[in-house]
Design a binder for these strands. Structure first.
Lengths: 233, 233
DNA sequence: ACACAAATGGAGAGCCTTCCTCCGTTTTGT
DNA sequence: ACAAAACGGAGGAAGGCTCTCCATTTGTGT
């Protein structure tokens, strides 16, 4: 069964109401098992897995899972708050890179790499379907930094002037879905389209016609994310 | 209720076994109602609607729907074979355009426009989940022509040499999913990313690094389409 | 107008999936 | 040894979809 190393986001040992007695040793052991199993199953199969799936993977009964985590959202919060924060860190890292274009590309490519490696994370990033305040709060810290990265590269004259800030999350979302299409058949396929898109984003002397249609507003972007559902069977 | 103009793909009046007596007038009327309703509901909401939804939209009982069309696939075949053939026609039209690049763009943009206008069609194009032999046969006629369009533009020196034939359906599939994300919030948003992608596809003097990763094989492309599911709630 | 067969509608059965509970049993800590 | 914590998983609840069937209605030919 699963080796019980600490999950990266180890919640305190005494889950539940504050200042209550600690769990028995077997209960604590099982709680860790459940977290570890949930992590693996979410990563591999996405957030749509059943509590039964998690229980089986953990080698415990489903009642045990519910006892410790009365709903799936709590598992998701426990496990993904920090993962989403990694995306934030990636964006902040991009700001430390001197070349604005390289900083921008570093962020865009890096978050797609994280998405490619973790299906649950990808689903959290491109949809509003799961998670609660903690994950939502972590997620909302991404956009302002991403916009900084974008604006920096545009003002440096590398990204064409007719690209709008909301085009970036639109690109991220779209490439995120390609990550899912090809996750099993060819996990790196998205890199080709990313490269094509990046080349298309750069200022080019021959390109005369501006981008068509109006860019998304942030409200429209939110609306799009609100109706996303897993794109995989 | 729905005006009973002919659906574009009007099957023969005597459905069912050949050489049987014709339907009564009310039955024939209802059959047309069902086809029209299915057409509208599939176009608007995609292929995942229930038979109940179609019955309600047609203003008939669900038993009536099943009597005429014992399974949803038959409705899909009856309605979409010709629509898919429109994509084929679009590709063939592209071949009549003298400029290879314009011909290629005409096809790519045109089929995305059709997808944007018809959710059922989009689902058929990017997934293997629905339809039977007739739709599949029509669909399989697209790729050879699309490859011709692509190869023509590449040999004319307009599309960069490191783009592979399978990159085109990959792009189409990916942009097709963007069509869905933004269908209600901003139905033309995909045009921006298409323009960016097209600019990225063009030969550019400054672009030195070839596209990363291997292109998809056709088997991998098929595999990806096989596990697609509706991306919308 | 009438007889009869075609056609109808939609409630409910059947099946599936997921969430969730509960109680006899087991395990643990003191 | 004993009491309380913890367990497992069968089965209930709820929701969703497909499909059938029978009392009733309707169309058509004579």
């Amino acid at each position: 069964m699963t080796d019980l190393g600490d999950p990266a986001t180890e919640p305190p040992a005494t889950a539940g109401a504050p200042a209550e007695r600690p769990l028995r040793a077997d209960a604590e052991r099982n709680r860790r098992r459940i977290l570890q199993a949930a992590r693996e199953v979410f990563t591999e199969q996405g957030l749509g897995v059943t509590m039964d799936d998690i229980a089986k993977h953990a080698g415990v009964g489903v009642g045990t899972v519910y006892r410790r985590f009365p709903e799936k959202g709590e598992l998701i919060d426990a496990l993904f708050e920090e993962r989403v924060s990694e995306i934030v860190a990636l964006a902040e890292e991009g700001l430390t890179i001197e070349d604005p274009w390289e900083g921008f590309v570093h962020f865009l490519r890096g978050q797609l790499e994280l998405q490619a490696a973790d299906r649950g994370l990808k689903e959290l990033l491109i949809s509003h379907g799961h998670g609660s305040n903690r994950v939502t709060a972590a997620r909302s810290r991404i956009a302002p930094i991403a916009i900084q990265l974008f604006t920096r590269a545009q003002q440096a004259g590398v990204i064409r002037a007719d690209v709008a800030p909301t085009d970036v999350p639109m690109i991220g979302m779209t490439l995120g879905s390609l990550v899912d299409y090809t996750r099993e058949s060819h996990p790196d396929a998205w890199r080709r389209l990313l490269a094509i898109v990046l080349d298309g984003l750069r200022v080019q002397p021959e390109v005369g016609t501006p981008l068509p249609a109006e860019p998304l507003t942030f409200e429209q972007l939110d609306q799009s994310m609100a109706c996303w559902k897993s794109g995989r069977r």
